[in-house]
Each structure stands twice: as C-alpha cells, then as structure tokens.
C-alpha cells in the first residue's frame, strides 16, 4: 500500500489534511515512535502529516505573563538550547532530554512523547508536575486542556478525530520555585522508565508552599498525585513529610507486573523517587 506524505506550512492545512485522511492519517513529529511502530508493523498509516514545517509548533515563546509556550514539535535538543527555559523549568527540560540518545534528541519532541500515549513517556510526568496546559486544534477549532487529561490509557488519548496538539503552556514562576524529574531505568540510558517522577514546588523560608507531583509508568496513564503534593505543602520537607508523600505515591500506583518491573518494585520505587526528586527540586528552588 502506498503512503501519502504531506508537510503543510500552516496548522489549518495540517488539520484539514489530517481530518481528511480520517482513521488512516498519522501525525509525524520526530518520528522516533511512529517510524519504529511502522517498521514493526504495529501501525500502517495511509497518510502521514508532518508537522515540523509549522512555525507555531516548532517555536518556543515567552508568554506575556512570563510563562512559556513550547511548540509540540520542538525537539529535545532545541529545548535544551533555550537558556531561559532551562533555568526556569529545569525539570521539564531534563525530563525531555532524557528521551533516547543524542541522536534521538535531535528528533524526539514533547508532543510526540505525550501523543504516543505511553504511561512511561519521560517528559509527561514533568509536564504534569509543571501544570502545563495543552493547546489543541482540530476541525472544530481550538481548545485547551491540562496535560494530565490528554492520555486516556496506553496508546489512547482524549483527542477528537483530526485534533493535533499545538503547544504546551508552562505557567510563570514566582521566586523560590523549581522542578525536577527522575526516572528509574535498569541501565544508564537507552531504556524505558520503570518509574518516572516529576516534582514542581515553591519554597518560602524553608517551607513548601506549593507542589505538584507527576508519576509515570505506574498506572495506565501518567498520574497527577494530589495526595503526595498535599503531604509536601506546608511542611519543611522533613523526613516525616517526605515519608508521607512517598507513601501517597506508592498508594497511587496501579502498576502491572511485566518484563520491565514487578508490581512490588514499581510501588516501592515510586516512593523512593518522590523523595529524591523533591529534594532536588527544593535545592534548585533555593534550599529547604
């Protein structure tokens, strides 16, 4: 079967082409998931819509209020080169930069990572912790959604037919705020997260005043763990608070036993990573 490839310059054209292809269409960002899946015979698209030629999807802008709008098709390598973004959202950038290798970084995008729908995608827990808002455009126009609402299950998304993820909006940061991401992989690189944990927080005089926790690879979708955040907020990130937040993470896990990790292992490690990630974020935010 022949594959049609289109690389429109505008989002409207892309939406049109994607909608026209109906079920047989696939968005191509970096292709580091899509091409692998095509080669393995998992997907066989009739039309490929390449979104890397569209300005809005491939740029990073500061928003008026001091936040950032990151195009869905920006590669990890470009993200890393953005000095200010790396300073303000180090956790989001480090999570995205963990994807694959140097070669993969030249292609892989946060939009692809999210839309691939894997619960183990590395950038997603960091985006969830960051409170990123996703902008989506489809045949019925534009809408926004918190990032944690996008995944529906492994490989499934809460997107309507023809909808494309346009960008991630990261909120402005006050003083004493930072974020971090850690993952557990058996090797040092080229592996899939067995557990991933993103923490974003604000510290004020040694007390944690705001926090969000994202957990990956422990449930059918990446989780926003509000109980863990609650345990951190108002505390001085002392051992008791960290233990409570860690327990909340472990309690939130609904993992599977598979070749990559056991239920017991993932559940325990979720708590361990929460503690470690929180301390890194707090250190970056200016210390406990």
């Amino acid at each position: 079967m022949d594959i049609q490839y289109v690389a429109p310059r505008t989002l409207d054209e892309a939406v049109r082409a994607f909608a026209a292809a109906a079920g047989a269409g696939r968005i191509l960002a970096g292709g580091t998931d899509l091409l692998v899946q095509m080669r393995n015979g998992v997907v066989a698209p009739g039309t490929i819509v390449d979104i890397k030629k569209i300005g809005e999807l491939t740029s990073i802008e500061e928003t008026k209020d001091g936040g950032f709008r990151v195009g869905a098709a920006v590669s990890g390598a470009v993200l890393r080169e953005h000095a200010k973004l790396s300073k303000v959202w180090p956790g989001v950038v480090e999570a995205t930069n963990l994807i694959g290798s140097t070669q993969v970084q030249g292609r892989a995008t946060p939009g692809g990572n999210l839309c691939n729908g894997s619960p183990a995608g590395d950038s997603v827990p960091a985006m969830v912790a960051a409170g990123a808002i996703v902008t989506i455009q489809g045949p019925n126009g534009r809408r926004e959604m918190p990032v944690e609402k996008v995944p529906k299950g492994p490989g499934r998304l809460n997107l309507e037919p023809g909808e494309i993820v346009v960008s991630f909006t990261l909120p402005p940061r006050g003083k004493g705020s930072s974020d971090a991401y850690l993952r557990m992989i058996p090797r040092t690189e080229m592996d899939i997260a067995v557990v991933g944990c993103g923490v974003s927080l604000t510290m004020d005089g040694g007390t944690c005043t705001a926090a969000r926790v994202g957990l990956g690879a422990v449930a059918p979708t990446v989780l926003l763990v509000e109980e863990a955040a609650k345990a951190l907020i108002g505390s001085k990130l002392d051992d008791a608070a960290l233990a409570k937040a860690a327990a909340a993470c472990s309690a939130a896990c609904r993992p599977i036993d598979d070749k990559r990790g056991t239920i017991a292992y993932r559940t325990k490690v979720a708590g361990v990573l929460l503690k470690r990630t929180t301390l890194i974020a707090a250190e970056r935010a200016g210390g406990k």
Binding site: P186, R187, T188, E189, M190, D191, I192, K259
Partner: peptide, 24 residues
C-alpha cells in the same frame, strides 16, 4: 531471556533484552 506464560520469548529486542550500553 524472559518467557511469557505461552512459552514465547517476551523480550526479543535490545530494548528489553538488556545488554549493558557503554555508559553502564
């Protein structure tokens, strides 16, 4: 080698058959 309950190898790729990479 990890076999599934049907007796089929469950990790037939270098992703899940974990040989050390050089950074390991």
């Amino acid at each position: 080698y990890i076999f599934n309950k049907d007796g089929k190898l469950d990790n037939p790729s270098f992703l899940d058959y974990r040989m050390p990479v050089s950074s390991d």
